[in-house]
């Protein structure tokens, strides 16, 4: 479905995206595009959505170059970043126009607008102008315009920005539902927790380079050389005695009622730790991985390339 072969993007002398190669297969599913601000996420999404042609290399969506290509554009939907909508227009009329620009007409257009509005929960407020809508409502309308024509590929650039927690959860549920129905979704964010809640498959970008690609677990496997911190709560002295005998130990810190250990290859030490605790070999009451989340993954990888 998506294929990049050493595709790069320059803004004059500035490199927005280094030559990047990856492929996403056909079929539904959600892929997260992660990276801090300025990592090149929007550049990549602009290449994929056909807004900009690559400065070098090749971008193929559904087997064709997407830039100003109606055959590709008819099959994808884009929700750009930000809160930008045309001034002075009513949402329902604007959606009708966007539907017509996607090749819909007549009853199919009416049905598509109604379904898109219903999907994003805006059916009863679509008569409002954009100026009279809250940010969350406008974001839903922006999503509706991308869903109108039933795209096979949906691209969302930082869609959770500015949404309240309830709206985020609603949007996540909607995206999961669309993915289950066969839509391939590419969603960018600089907040790792958002993506972690949504999908396991990620592309990690940093300074215009694709650092890693795969599931969180696969990427985590790349990090075995980095120590991971675990807090072992229980009788600290006994826990520390057990820990110093482990070959994976990199560092140890005592706390009042716990010991914090830094270990390499957590996948090796964790089963041993759990087994020993279960057999009563160590007085362990709780185990808290301090940095096994996506933020740690992200920081490790980006630190390596900084």
């Amino acid at each position: 479905m998506i294929s990049l072969d050493r595709a790069s993007l320059r803004y004059g002398p500035i490199l927005g995206l280094s030559p990047t190669t990856f492929e996403l297969p056909d079929g539904g599913g959600i892929t997260g595009l992660l990276g801090p601000n300025g990592a090149g996420k929007s550049s990549l999404l602009q290449l994929l959505s056909g807004l900009l042609p690559p400065s070098g290399g090749e971008v193929r969506i559904f087997g064709e170059a997407p830039f100003r290509n109606p055959a590709v554009l008819a099959r994808l939907g884009l929700v750009p970043e930000g809160d930008r909508l045309p001034t002075g227009l009513r949402a329902d009329r604007w959606l009708r126009m966007m539907g017509e620009l996607s090749g819909l007409s007549g009853e199919a257009l009416q049905a598509a607008v109604a379904l898109a509005l219903q999907t994003v929960g805006m059916a009863d407020r679509a008569h409002l102008t954009f100026a009279r809508m809250s940010k969350g409502m406008r974001q839903r309308i922006r999503l509706a315009q991308a869903l109108l024509h039933g795209p096979e590929l949906l691209i969302l650039d930082e869609p959770f920005n500015g949404l309240d927690p309830e709206a985020r959860l609603t949007l996540m549920a909607l995206l999961r539902d669309l993915a289950e129905k066969g839509t391939r979704i590419l969603v960018s964010s600089h907040i790792l927790g958002e993506i972690a809640q949504l999908t396991d498959r990620i592309l990690l970008l940093f300074r215009g380079r694709l650092l890693a690609e795969g599931t969180v677990t696969e990427i985590r496997q790349l990090l075995d050389r980095h120590p991971v911190e675990l807090r072992l709560t229980g009788e600290a002295q006994a826990l520390a005695r057990w820990a110093v005998e482990q070959p994976e130990l990199a560092a140890l810190r005592m706390e009042e009622d716990a010991v914090v250990i830094s270990v390499r290859s957590p996948r090796d030490i964790l089963p041993r730790l759990q087994k020993t605790a279960a057999e009563g070999g160590i007085p362990l009451r709780a185990l808290d991985p301090l940095d096994l989340n996506l933020d740690a993954v992200f920081q490790y990888l980006t630190k390596d390339h900084a």
Binding site: S49, G50, L51, R68, P70, A71, L73, A74, L76, G77, L78, P80, R84, L85, P86, M98, L101, S102, G103, R142, Q145
Partner: peptide
């Protein structure tokens, strides 16, 4: 808001 128009097949 032009990108919203330009990603259409029109």
């Amino acid at each position: 808001t032009l990108p919203l128009l330009l990603v259409r097949p029109a």
